[in-house]
Design a protein around this nucleic acid. Structure first.
Length: 886
RNA sequence: GGGCUCGUGGUCUAGUCGGUUAUGACGUCGCCCUUACACGGCGGAGGUCGCCGGUUCGAAUCCGGCCGGGCCCA
């Protein structure tokens, strides 16, 4: 079933290569080969062009970029984030800023430790701390190398001279220095305090690392010395330190100082009254244990209760659990329930849906243990204050920060009982316990490997225990901004604060929060002037990408199929800045089609320019030419405005519309006849084509760096678009805007007329007369584009016209007449035709005389043909008559 | 339970400090290979802008309530 179309197409493709070689040696290739182009430019561009210049007197634009975790795979969420960063870095460079786009790597942490254990079939305790660290470092280095390749393919204009790696000595010595500074100023302290603890990872974790999981559990009712208690955690009975009831609960009449005996264990605990007890839950009496949950900690503090540690760091029952000692919590729970049953004190059990805090990494339910840990003081007012001095994009993301800060209850626990992390740089005197810290110039130190250079200041002893705890990785990454702005521990760094922080909304409560906290603590100032939040990337099915759903898309796959520029366009256009964005192959395909279209525009422009170069000073005379310059000027304004407030979707959309609709479909269609014909005004069109095309290249440069470079270099052989200033072209010609719009509309209406009357678009049309209010000089464009014999006239068409309807300008009528607007419109409609054409000054409305506001309505005409000899099209006040062919 | 956010043709999406005919893409249907492009051009069909109520001359847009999704937190 080979149709005519198919046959033509196959012929076309067979003949194409030969045809090509013959005529096109100095022309652009017919197809845009993204793979070839992207690889070629990648090999040509130099890293030095993106270096931050510390000697420059341009205004600085320092970007506090997110250091990714070096997993080895740069995922699509990273890609979105980095695209935003690169759009603004490239834009700001073109705008004349001295831009710093550093690349960091946030190396430390549990995932790498776990991976190393897995790969080497060991556990961290099988080798020395130093050996284990080395294995982690080597794996991380390998992963970084891998990820750098993807970053380069995506054409991110990274300043590689400002790369930082948090596990390297020059970085983590800064982390240690920042620790010592905050220790000195009292922001950091050591204390025994309840902390979230993962017994599988054997480390304390911060609230930000606690995830919540929906689980089903048993609510157990048992007899507690005569009163009924409901608990989900009977294994904590040994840790029971009080029983609490609501003060207004009629069921319980305890005197002040009443005590109860804990079943099975026999220790005595007080009864306390507290408003926070929910009388409707369970039996209305609740046991307080150290610690079942956050509420227990609350009560424990408030009522000054004793401490009973029943669970140790490995999640095993301790000494005070008596015969249950050494069991894990589940074994203990079962054993205690069995014992309760046999003693007949277990009354009943109910199923209960519960949200349980888990370790974000391994999903093990967290325990709250009281431990000696290191903490950073959280001062909510300071943080709120700094957060409010930062401009948030989009604005509502500030609320997330406010809410998070408002509900902070505990200080930030920064110590971890792990290995691959920044060591806490302190020692303790073996004799008197005094804490000793290293001198600044001795950093970095690993206190488990080296000893202080001095004797204990207090007791002159020379033997010390090095701190074995290490720092939370957020302690590393929360000074990223201090690092890139040149902090050396002494006051405010030279480039501080940074201009912008780009990051995802998922880490507002961690990275953004901790960074603000640390900047305020160490410099007294906000860390950045602006923060730009990007959304999460969802799978094509609208769900979060996950292995189990099988909806993961990796950037490498897109790069390979459609190239970096198409992926970057998807990132810009997929959604408004800050919104979550669904991955969509269609958008990537549409992006690559846009490149094809632009490529063909480039070929057209080049072919025309090659015929006879263009004259930079040619007078722009023809209406279509002036019109395009007006539209270009508008486009540049709109795109620039969008870029200034990081609305990348609006910016790229505006560029695409201008290139595709305005330039290709309207303008080129109008002027190609003039270009082919070689009219005198050909030079005018060439100059306009050149101007518009060059401007599009520049505007596309931040979004599609490879493609823009390829196009631009076809115009200017030895120049890079990435070293050009941003477009600043303006052109003001109101008459050209209005008349040009009319011209385009007339051409469109005539095309539609041909379509409706069953003609081919290039079919000749005979005599067409266009009646306009003003004289139009279109240099013959309209006639050629629609293939007709066009006559422009300014006199009145000899047609019978009748008013068919009235267009009201509601923006005028509404405010003037308010609730009488409807009555006004009815009254106008009732006027006789001659008064609609020449309206009176006033009209009678509900008995009173009112002025008719200017521009409040326009009559709509329809025309009666003169002896059926012409077809008539009306466009506003323009009338087009088309002679009917015999 | 609280906070934030979203709900627009089959799908995704723009517009959201009120104003005439609601944007674009993909898909779909029809016509057309015209010296840049069929990876194209032109045209069409397809929407009670989640539901209900209110404010207003006028509501996708503002207000209230409800329903449903997502994120964050208890």
């Amino acid at each position: 079933m080979s149709s005519y179309k198919d046959r033509i197409r196959s012929l076309y493709f067979i003949s194409q290569p030969t045809f090509w070689r013959m005529v096109s040696s100095d022309q652009l290739p017919k197809n845009y080969d993204f793979a070839e182009v992207e690889e070629r430019w990648r090999g040509t561009w130099r890293d030095e062009d993106h270096y931050f210049d510390s000697n420059s007197n341009k205004p600085q634009f320092v970007i506090d970029t997110p250091p990714p975790y070096p997993t080895g795979n740069f995922h699509i969420g990273n890609a979105l984030n980095w695209c935003y960063i690169d759009f603004l870095a490239r834009y700001k460079r073109m705008k004349g800023f001295n831009v710093m786009f550093p690349q960091g790597w946030d190396c430390h942490g549990l995932p790498t430790e776990v991976k190393v254990e897995e790969l080497n079939h060991i556990t961290k305790n099988d080798v020395s701390r130093e050996e284990f660290r080395k294995m982690c470092r080597e794996l991380t280095e390998k992963n970084i190398i891998q990820m750098r390749l993807t970053l380069r393919k995506m054409a991110f204009s990274i300043d590689w001279s400002n790369e930082y790696i948090t596990m390297m000595p020059d970085y983590y010595s800064k982390t240690q220095l920042s620790f010592l500074r905050m220790l000195k100023t009292g922001y950091i302290y050591q204390s025994e305090h309840p902390v979230n603890y993962c017994t599988r990872c054997e480390t304390a974790i911060a609230f930000a690392e606690v995830a919540y999981d929906e689980r089903e559990t048993q609510l157990n009712y048992f007899d507690f010395h005569g009163i009924e208690i409901a608990t989900t955690r009977p294994e904590l009975l040994a840790a029971c330190v009080a029983v609490a009831v609501h003060p207004a609960d009629e069921r319980y009449h305890f005197q002040k100082g009443s005590k109860l005996i804990v079943p099975l264990f026999g220790h005595e605990v007080p009864v306390v009254k507290d408003e926070a007890v929910d009388p409707a839950f369970g039996s209305g009496a609740v046991m307080i244990c150290t610690f079942g949950d956050k509420q227990d900690v609350h009560w424990w503090k408030q009522h000054n209760l004793g401490l009973r540690k029943a669970i140790d760091r490995q999640g095993k029952m301790t000494e005070i659990a008596g015969k249950y000692k050494g069991m894990n919590t589940t074994e203990c729970r079962n054993a205690i329930l069995a014992d309760m049953r046999s003693k007949n004190i277990l009354k009943r059990q109910e199923k209960l849906a519960q949200r349980v805090g888990t370790c974000w990494r391994c999903k093990t339910p967290i325990e709250i243990l009281s431990e000696r840990q290191w903490f950073v003081k959280i001062k909510p007012d300071e943080i709120q204050n700094a957060a409010h001095q930062i401009t948030w994009y989009p604005g509502h993301m500030l609320l997330r920060m406010e809410n998070w800060v408002d509900q902070m209850e505990w200080d930030w626990c920064i110590s971890r009982q792990r290995i691959f992390a920044t060591p806490i740089p302190v020692w303790f005197c073996k004799k008197c316990g005094e804490m000793v810290t290293p001198a600044d110039e001795d950093l970095p130190v690993d206190p488990t490997m080296v000893m202080p250079k001095y004797a204990c200041l207090k007791c002159r002893n020379r033997e010390f225990d090095g701190e074995v705890d290490v720092l939370d990785t957020w302690m590393d990454s929360s000074i990223s901004v201090l690092n890139v702005t040149g902090w050396d521990g002494s006051g405010t760094p030279p480039y501080f604060p940074a201009q912008i922080r780009p990051q995802g909304h998922d880490i507002i409560r961690t990275w953004a929060f901790y960074t603000i906290l640390r900047s305020v603590a160490l410099t007294g100032s906000k860390p950045w002037e602006e923060i730009l939040i990007n959304g999460m990337v969802l799978g094509e099915d609208g769900f979060k990408m996950s292995k189990s759903r099988g909806n993961i898309i990796v950037p490498e796959e897109i790069l390979q199929k459609y190239g970096a520029d198409a992926l970057r366009q998807w990132a810009a256009m997929g959604a408004a800045t800050g919104s979550d964005i669904m991955f969509n192959w269609n958008d990537v395909i549409a992006a690559s089609r846009f490149q094809t279209k632009m490529w063909n525009i480039a070929r057209f422009v080049l072919i025309q320019l090659k015929k006879e170069g263009f004259d930079q000073n040619a007078p722009v005379t023809a209406l279509a030419d002036r019109w395009l310059l007006v539209r270009l000027s508008d486009t540049i304004q709109q795109v620039s405005t969008a870029m200034e407030c990081y609305q990348f979707d609006t910016a790229l959309k505006t560029i695409r519309e201008f290139a595709w609709d305005t330039l290709a479909d309207n303008y080129i269609e109008l002027v190609k006849g003039r270009l082919y014909a070689g009219d005198t005004s050909r030079k005018s069109a060439l100059l306009v084509l050149h101007t518009a095309f060059e401007a599009i290249c520049k505007m596309l440069a931040p979004f599609t760096p490879y493609f823009a470079e390829e196009c631009y270099s076809s115009l200017n052989r030895d120049a890079s678009v990435h070293r050009q200033p941003w477009v600043s072209f303006t052109y003001d010609d109101e008459a050209a805007r209005i008349e040009g719009n009319m011209l385009v509309q007339v051409a469109a209406e005539i095309r539609k007329y041909k379509h409706d009357t069953g003609r081919a678009l290039n079919a000749p049309l005979g005599k067409v007369t266009i009646y306009t209010p003003h004289t139009i000089n279109d240099e013959g464009d309209t006639g050629r584009t629609i293939n007709a014999d066009i006559h422009w006239r300014t006199d009145t068409a000899k047609l019978d016209r009748v008013i068919s309807d009235i267009d009201f300008n509601r923006a005028v009528v509404g405010p003037v007449f308010r609730n009488r607007a409807m009555a006004f419109m009815t009254a106008i409609k009732a006027l006789p035709p001659e008064q609609l054409i020449n309206p009176p000054e006033t009209i009678i409305l509900e008995g009173s005389e009112v002025r008719i506001p200017e521009n409040s309505f326009t009559p709509k005409y329809s025309y009666i043909e003169e002896g059926a000899k012409v077809d008539v099209i009306t466009i506003g006040d323009v009338i087009v008559t088309i002679a009917k062919s015999a």
